[in-house]
């Protein structure tokens, strides 16, 4: 049965222990950032940053809000990144539903990055493998996460932990239990119950985010406001959904051009050429 991580934005206190837990478990190097006058300090998802918390200030008419949201791979039910990958390097794990990149197969073409509808493209490119990672792999930690330089990286759902009966590292560490992990059905019912409770407490815009357009997600959000407020697409689609139609516009255009100008002018050339003979 598909698993899901539930991130409850209404419970998250933005302590960012998830960020550190992820870096630690996955042997990921620190980013290089500069204070830019915000709490997120221009952190972005990248080859060594697989989750982060964003801070959003919003002056609602009735009250000031400071929203927190976890940027991370959503582990789509129908993952666009896997669909577009020309090397077949991205697959959906049948046991957990996690979307995994096989870095041995990946060529670093970044196609998946642009296909992802979330967080400005979740899979990110990384040029180098750190010494710590080399050492880690030397200890036999190659399956399922072999690190290859110049390939794409993103959250793996700690599939190695999950398959050994643990929760993903970020979930285990979360102090206010804003992150939970389990079967998707169970997570959905927890999320729905939470939203009902939040509505009772006056959070009229509380909602579950599990967009159908990408086949549902393996990361479910409980949000306190509309998805756009958090930088989430309201209705994301599998990016390859309209591929055939898009091809057709190209083919039709080729057809049109076959007639205008080619058939018109070349046919005329045949006549002109005849006249010339």
């Amino acid at each position: 049965m598909a698993k899901a991580i539930l991130y409850d934005a209404s419970k998250c206190t933005a302590c960012r222990a998830c960020y550190v837990a992820c870096k630690q478990w996955n042997v990921l190097a620190a980013a290089e950032v500069k204070e830019l006058g915000t709490y997120y300090n221009a952190l972005t998802l990248d080859g060594t940053t697989w989750n982060l918390i964003d801070f959003i200030e919003k002056d609602d008419p009735d009250r000031f809000r400071w929203h927190f949201i976890s940027h991370r791979c959503m582990h789509c039910g129908d993952p666009s990144c896997a669909n577009v990958c020309a090397a077949g390097a991205i697959t959906k794990d049948s046991e957990t539903g996690f979307v995994l990149i096989d870095n041995d197969k990946c060529l670093g073409c970044k196609n998946c990055h642009y296909a992802c509808p979330f967080w400005e493209g979740v899979p990110r490119f990384r040029d180098e493998i750190s010494e710590a990672e080399e050492e880690w792999m030397d200890h036999g930690n190659k399956v399922p996460g072999k690190r290859v330089a110049s390939t794409m990286y993103k959250c793996r759902g700690c599939v190695d932990r999950v398959k050994n009966g643990l929760e993903p590292a970020c979930v285990t560490t979360c102090p206010p239990d804003a992150l939970q992990f389990g079967d998707k059905g169970e997570m959905l019912s927890i999320a729905n119950a939470r939203v009902a409770l939040l509505k009772e407490r006056g959070e009229t815009k509380a909602q579950v985010y599990d967009p159908k357009g990408v086949g549902g997600t393996g990361v479910i959000y409980v949000l306190l406001d509309d998805p756009e407020v958090y930088g989430l697409p309201a209705d994301p689609k599998v990016s390859t959904a309209d591929m055939v139609t898009k091809w057709l516009t190209g083919l039709i255009t080729a057809g049109i051009l076959t007639i205008v100008p080619f058939w018109m002018v070349f046919k005329a050339a045949e006549a002109e050429g005849k006249g010339g003979e």
């Binding site: 960012r16 960020y19 550190v20 870096k23 630690q24 190097a29 620190a30 980013a31 290089e32 950032v33 500069k34 204070e35 300090n41 952190l43």
Partner: peptide, 9 residues
Amino acid sequence: PWLVDLMPE
């Protein structure tokens, strides 16, 4: 360094 990432300055 991981914590410095989060609050660098």
